[in-house]
């Protein structure tokens, strides 16, 4: 039997996956990474994209879409803490501004900048989603 590593994929709103994996692929900020069992300990951020887990034993590859998050790798354990929504520094800022605005009940004129940041993040997410779909399609064929 091939060596496996325990994989947990969790988001703040629930657990997505928990089980064994022979190989895990994740979209890290510095480029896509593939993790085999006994990988050196690693912590890195994820960007929007798809996470794939090969459970081994001839079972089909599991796909998950993440819009960002953090991956923690230990030799026999991989944890992916996925974000539930689109996140970017500018967007977080925008959300903060919005919360402030609500409190002040005043109109801010900074909507222009916010819109651009939001559109950019949404575009990045949409592209990543499309790529995931594309990959899935190719696999089906």
């Amino acid at each position: 039997m091939a060596m496996t590593v325990h994989v947990d994929i969790v988001s703040a709103e629930g657990e997505l996956y928990s089980g064994q994996g022979e190989m895990i692929y994740a979209p890290a900020v510095m480029g896509e990474i593939g993790i085999a069992p006994r990988h050196a300990p690693l912590v890195t951020r994820l960007k929007p994209g798809d996470v794939r887990v090969a459970p081994g034993g001839g079972k089909p590859m599991e796909h998950f879409y993440v819009s960002g998050g953090i991956i923690e790798v230990q030799p026999f354990r991989v944890t992916i803490m996925a974000d539930t929504g689109v996140r970017a520094a500018d967007l977080d800022e925008a959300a903060a501004l919005e919360a402030k605005k609500r409190a002040e009940e005043a109109l801010a004129n900074k909507t222009g900048e916010m819109e651009v940041a939001r559109a950019q993040a949404e575009l990045a997410e949409a592209v990543a989603q499309l790529q995931t779909i594309e990959k899935l399609r190719k696999m089906k064929k």
């Binding site: 703040a12 709103e13 539930t84 929504g85 959300a95 501004l97």
Partner: peptide
């Protein structure tokens, strides 16, 4: 949803 809270927490 977590997103609804991000602004307030930030």
């Amino acid at each position: 949803h977590v997103e609804d809270l991000v602004g307030t927490v930030k």
